[in-house]
Design a protein around this nucleic acid. Structure first.
Lengths: 285, 285
DNA sequence: CGCAGCCTTGACCGTTTTCAATGAGGGTGG
DNA sequence: CCACCCTCATTGAAAACGGTCAAGGCTGCG
């Protein structure tokens, strides 16, 4: 499964403290965790540091199994994971991807079982934190206040973004949105937003976008011919990011924008708006 | 449309003000909140009860605006809401629905702004709780321990379910999945899972499923002709729920089921299933 | 009663899926 | 070291599916 990824090295050492010896390879401090997941300020506010084990996951192996008992949350340190569910026929539906800075396992809290498998796409590492311990930490460490809530909120938002990505448009627009999203996430963790290597197969992308993998392939060549990007296997370079962004806005169903509902009740709430101007009228035409 | 409702605005400010006379219509106790959202046990454990304002939202009006400042979480008491985003062309993408027992607003915690509009599909009511107050409650009231985490987890899971629903299949299978999901949620809140009335228009369903509304209409008649259900406008009766469930499993791409990956790293996670030691073995081969 | 949305149905056309064939890259074992 | 196998990616061609356009029925409301 390929680790010809020279570029991975730096990302590994990225946030951590001194990764000098083997011992630290497999541990991760609370402060470095907070640095990645809650910002520098929170990390600096940690007085008494603590350490968590880090689990290395070889490419293709599972970090979490669908239906597995929930006990831990995971924080991606390096590498890439995919979330997936299998229906009983064995068809695998990819539901998302996680890179450094993403939390894994939230979905398990409610019912005590994870609801998706989480599989490494390359050799990866994730800090392992028992949920119970994390809750104790939230109570004890001021800098941790609301940590889980913010992580959870991010997850929810990411889910909504993913939904919006998948819905409502043609194949190449979907792919454009996907690539822009990957670009953005790459940039967020300090990599290039213009040049990057996709760590997932075409088939994974296709599953995620709800398309046939051949269609994804064709969409790639279409975007390349459109001059938006160059593709060489999984290596992507976005050469016209603005063009791609405006292309991505294209929605097929432009006809429906009229839906001029006169709105029966009116009582929306000014209060939710900070500023008076507000884009308020969006929802309710 | 706009808010000629300047007067109503105060209801947003939450906790405090004039909830005096209309009284119980517009208030909701902490214990009843917990009953719906965390179970009877939690509700019974409340010693000192408290009350939250309940906001009535007429059908078609917005409870929350995309981009609105995050201050409150909402707990649906009655009625139905849809989550939606508008792209700049004005096309409305529906991202989900909420009924009694669902929480609204989680997505706002991370960045201080809501990321979707939330619009009532019929006359509805939602309890309004300031986030800050809720956090205080979690600290003070034992029965509230972990309340937000569980709610958040449910949201995450719901998002994943929605994603899975939308992806990867033909139109009528999507509709079948949607209806089964609605059925299940209806049953969860004590209504019939066999007969129910959809509160959203075909267009909303279509947007949610990423289809044209005509296609949704055709899918309804297809399922009806298949003998799975009867449809009269928005009233649904599922007559063959097992049949519908097995139909829903049909994935187009059945060819891919072969993908018999022997899963290279297998070491996966005995840890996740296994006992307490769990984290010890992070050094999975 | 008549208007306005909503839902349904039909026909046509474009996109995507499916089936099939080919080539590139990597790993394994002779 | 090379042949072989396997997976991944790409491309072509035919067929199916869903989208778009258009028309008509249904329901609720003024």
């Amino acid at each position: 499964m390929v680790c010809r990824t020279a570029d991975r090295a730096d990302s590994t050492t990225g946030a951590g403290p001194s990764v000098e010896n083997a011992a630290l390879e497999h541990r991760c401090s609370l402060s470095s965790l907070l640095r990645s997941f809650a910002g520098e300020a929170a990390a600096a506010a940690v007085l008494e540091d603590r350490y968590f084990p880090v689990r290395p996951v070889p490419g293709g192996a599972a970090l979490v199994h669908e239906e597995g008992t929930f006990r831990h949350l995971f924080f991606v340190q390096s590498g890439t994971f995919k979330f997936a569910r299998c229906d009983e026929e064995g068809y695998e539906q990819v539901l998302g991807f996680a890179v450094r800075g993403d939390m894994i396992g939230m979905d398990g809290i409610a019912n005590g079982r994870y609801t998706t498998s989480v599989i490494a796409l390359e050799d990866s590492r994730a800090a392992v934190v028992a949920f119970s311990e994390l809750r104790g930490l939230e109570a004890d460490v001021p800098a941790m206040q609301g940590f889980l809530h913010r992580c959870a909120s991010r997850e929810v938002r990411r889910g909504l973004d993913a939904l919006q990505l998948v819905c409502a448009v043609g194949a190449d627009v979907r792919l454009a949105r996907f690539l822009l999203q990957m670009s953005e996430r790459n940039a967020l963790i300090g990599h290039s937003g213009r040049r990057f290597v996709l760590r997932m197969s075409r088939r994974d992308i296709a599953s995620y976008l709800g398309l046939a993998h051949e269609t994804v392939s064709r969409a790639f060549t279409a975007l390349a011919q459109g001059g938006y990007l160059t593709v060489s296997q999984r290596a992507i370079e976005i050469v016209d990011i603005e063009g791609l962004q405006s292309f991505q806005r294209l929605t097929r169903r432009t006809a429906e924008l009229d839906a001029p509902r006169p709105l029966p009740g009116m009582a929306t709430d000014a209060a939710d708006f900070a500023s008076p101007s507000a884009l308020g009228d969006c929802a309710v035409a």
